[in-house]
């Protein structure tokens, strides 16, 4: 058929004859869609189930103490008195300490690896840092007990002498305690922060970097004015991931924090975290109320983790809104 003949209306296929979607594609698409929905929902359902089990398993505690459970410092299994405050405090403080130590160190190494180091050095270092992430937490705990704690008990008197006017650095130098836990946790989350931040920094578009260099910026100014602001959301993502890990970390912290349910302003004093008390006492919880209180601690940990993450996200949202 010639081109003119094809163009004539009577020779064109009727519109109705063109299928919008074949029956096979329609069925496949629908199947795909519903199965994906199922997968997505299963995450929500799982989280819901966990919450429900935790609530159901701790009802006795909530009935006995009510909200006071969250604000009481009593933890006396012999007399059946339970309160979660020292554990909440220990969890939050050790995680915050870890973040405080790991964020500058991790971001700093990421900047070095992404912007300054030759590519080959950067790749080798990144591989080694990834290995650090694969060290089991019990090994880090052992390092904490045998290397970090003796070191800290030697260093702490010196710190007390110099900075003892701050309540943070007072008290007996046990070695094990909040500071040791914070340092070990920092070691655990450092690889996450470094690797993710490096990836994000490498993703900063080259034209942007050239743009600021062409204005007469030094490399430092390029990093602080363009690269870091551009990658801030990604680095914040790394921090969320790390924070979740630090809040829930059990083994390494249990080994070095001292396991004493007390609230002390000093970083040298032993403390306790929510995850650690569950791990330590679950097997030997005799009374029902003790067991239920440990589960209540689990529920509290669940809640605190959600709250901290939500707060961090809200902060990020505020920050990015201010920019746009």
């Amino acid at each position: 058929m010639s081109a003119e003949a094809l163009a004539r209306p009577e020779n064109r296929p009727a519109l109705k004859a063109i299928p919008v979607a074949g029956p096979r594609e329609q069925a496949g698409d629908r199947l795909f869609r519903w199965s994906l929905l199922l997968f997505a929902l299963s995450v929500v359902v799982l989280a819901g189930l966990v919450a429900w089990k935790l609530i159901a398993g701790s009802l006795m505690t909530w009935k006995a103490f009510g909200w006071r459970f969250l604000f009481s410092s009593a933890w006396d299994p012999v007399n059946d008195k339970f309160g979660a405050l020292p554990f909440i405090y220990g969890t939050l403080v050790s995680s915050a300490l870890a973040l405080l130590l790991a964020l500058p160190l991790g971001a700093g190494s990421a900047i070095f690896l992404a912007e300054l180091a030759p590519r080959r050095v950067s790749d080798v270092c990144t591989f080694l840092i990834e290995l650090l992430a694969a060290v089991p937490s019990v090994i880090l705990g052992l390092i904490g007990i045998f290397a970090l704690a003796p070191f800290l008990s030697a260093v702490e008197p010196w710190l007390t002498k110099r900075l003892g006017f701050l309540p943070l650095f007072q008290g007996a130098p046990y070695g094990v305690g909040m500071l040791a836990a914070g340092i070990i946790l920092a070691l655990m989350i450092l690889p996450y922060i470094t690797i993710v931040s490096r990836e994000v920094l490498l993703g900063v578009p080259r034209p942007l970097k050239e743009g600021v260099l062409a204005l007469g910026a030094t490399r430092w100014e390029m990093v602080t004015r363009v690269s870091l602001p551009y990658s801030a959301p990604g680095i914040a993502g790394a921090v969320f991931l790390s924070l979740g890990r630090a809040l829930g970390e059990t083994m390494a912290v249990t080994m070095v924090i001292g396991n004493t349910p007390k609230i002390s302003a000093s970083l040298f004093q032993p403390g306790y975290t929510m995850a650690a008390v569950i791990a330590n006492e679950l097997a030997e919880a005799v009374s029902d109320l003790h067991l239920q209180s440990l589960i209540a601690i689990g529920l509290t940990l669940f809640g605190v983790t959600i709250l901290v993450n939500a707060a961090a996200r809200l902060m990020l949202l505020r920050l990015s809104k201010r920019h746009s």
């Binding site: 578009p205 942007l208 050239e210 062409a214 204005l215 007469g216 551009y230």
Partner: peptide, 15 residues
């Protein structure tokens, strides 16, 4: 570079 300015192929304002 302060004395020799440059404009690139694609506009690259700082986002």
């Amino acid at each position: 570079r302060r004395h020799v300015g440059m404009v690139f192929q694609r506009p690259n304002p700082f986002p």
